[in-house]
């Protein structure tokens, strides 16, 4: 069954305590190749049947109303992926 992927990230200007703590840990572990970390969320919305424009629009709406808090987060991706396990080809 196809799924719609929604990625949500903290707004760039908003403090991300999670990312900050992870960045500090990476430095202490000697993994110094990264200058910053930001931690976001990924949602997978499974769709029964075809992903119509209407369904996609619903996902976009859900992304900005429920899945993200527009005060502190941005929706950075709303995208359809076909699930390989049921053999759907492009």
């Amino acid at each position: 069954m196809p799924r719609i992927i929604v990625d949500v990230m903290p707004k760039p200007e908003i403090l991300d305590p999670q990312g900050k703590a992870i960045a500090g840990a990476l430095q202490r572990l000697g993994q110094t190749g990264f200058s910053a970390v930001r931690q976001g969320k990924r949602f997978e919305l499974t769709v029964d049947g075809e992903v119509t424009e209407e369904v996609l629009e619903q996902a976009r709406h859900a992304a900005v109303t429920l899945l993200s808090n527009p005060v502190i987060e941005d929706v950075t991706r709303v995208e359809v992926v076909k699930d390989a396990t049921i053999g759907v080809s492009e």
Binding site: Q18, A21, A25
Partner: peptide
């Protein structure tokens, strides 16, 4: 510890 931000205990174990 470390705010439990990544996973609880995940950073402290190091």
């Amino acid at each position: 510890s470390y705010g439990d931000y990544l996973r609880a205990g995940a950073i402290s174990r190091f």
